[in-house]
C-alpha cells in the first residue's frame, strides 16, 4: 500500500454501504465520502442484494448483523451476491464491519467470503486503507482477527504446517506474520521486521484467509456447525 503507483490518485473506489443503522451509515458517509465513491446504501439483506447487483461496486462495507434474508445477516448478503463482478471484471469484494468481535461472527462472514473484518470503532483513515486494500484483492486482518486465527489453528500452541499448502495449520512464516499483526504492526512494519516485501506479507495474509475459508479444522467447523453456518 506504500508503493507509489497505489498512493497516486486513481479512480476512487466504488463502495456500497450496508448497515441497518441510518446514523452509522450517515456517519461513515460523512467520514469517508470524500475519499471513496459511495454509490449505494442498504439497510437490510434483501435491499442490499438488489443494490449490490445494480451498482456492482468494488467493495461492499457489510454489517454482520442485518435484518431480513434467512436471518443470518451479512452471511446472507454474501451468499446472495456470490459471483458478481465489477465492470473491470474484478469480483465484488466484501469488507465486514461489526460492533461485535465475537469469534462466531468473524468466522461466519470470513467463511462466507468476506476479504476482511474490522470493528466499527475503526477510525476513518484506517477504514479507507482497509477498503483500498480489499479492493486490491488483499485481505484485511485486525489484530483481534489475527489472534483468533492463531488460536483456531493451534499456532499459539506450537502447531506448524509441514508444507505451506496444508489447510489445517499455519506455516511458520504465516504464524510469524499473524503474530506481528496481533502485536499491532502494520503490514509495512511486518515486512520490515521479517525482512520481506509488503507484497509477500500480503501474500501470506491472503493465504491465511484462504485457509480460514477452506479449512475443515475442528475448531472452525465446530463453531460454524454450532451456529448452522455450514
Amino acid at each position: 500500500m506504500t508503493t507509489p503507483e497505489r498512493t497516486v490518485p486513481r479512480s476512487r473506489v466504488r463502495v456500497v454501504l450496508v448497515d441497518d443503522h441510518r446514523m452509522f451509515r450517515s456517519g461513515v458517509r460523512a467520514e469517508i465520502g470524500e475519499l471513496v465513491d459511495i454509490v449505494g446504501e442498504a439497510p437490510d439483506v434483501d435491499s442490499a442484494v438488489t443494490v449490490i447487483r445494480e451498482t456492482r461496486p468494488a467493495v461492499v462495507l457489510l454489517d454482520v448483523h442485518l435484518p431480513g434474508g434467512n436471518g443470518n445477516g451479512g452471511v446472507d448478503v454474501l451468499h446472495g451476491a456470490r459471483g458478481l463482478e465489477t465492470e473491470d471484471g474484478q469480483p465484488v469484494r466484501f469488507l465486514a464491519l461489526s460492533v461485535s468481535d465475537a469469534a462466531e461472527d468473524v468466522i461466519a462472514v470470513i467463511r462466507a467470503g468476506a476479504r476482511g473484518y474490522v470493528t466499527k470503532t475503526i477510525n476513518a483513515t484506517d477504514l479507507v486503507h482497509a477498503i483500498r486494500r480489499v479492493s486490491d484483492g488483499d485481505a484485511v486482518f485486525s489484530p483481534r482477527l489475527a489472534g483468533f486465527v492463531l488460536d483456531a489453528f493451534g499456532a499459539a500452541a506450537g502447531e506448524i504446517a509441514e508444507v505451506d499448502e496444508e489447510l489445517d495449520r499455519l506455516s511458520a512464516r504465516e504464524r510469524e506474520v499473524m503474530r506481528l499483526i496481533a502485536r499491532g504492526y502494520q503490514y509495512k512494519e511486518v515486512a520490515k521486521e521479517l525482512f520481506i516485501s509488503v507484497k509477500t506479507v500480503e501474500t501470506h495474509v491472503s493465504s491465511v484467509l484462504r485457509k480460514l475459508q477452506l479449512s475443515s479444522r475442528h475448531e472452525l467447523t465446530a463453531w460454524a456447525m454450532g451456529r448452522r453456518l455450514l
Binding site: A156, G158, R183, Y185
Partner: peptide
C-alpha cells in the same frame, strides 16, 4: 496494543 500468547513454550507478551 497488547498481545498475550500463552503456549506450551511459555508466555509471551508485547506492549506496543
Amino acid at each position: 496494543s497488547l498481545y498475550l500468547e500463552v503456549g506450551p513454550a511459555g508466555v509471551e507478551a508485547f506492549v506496543r
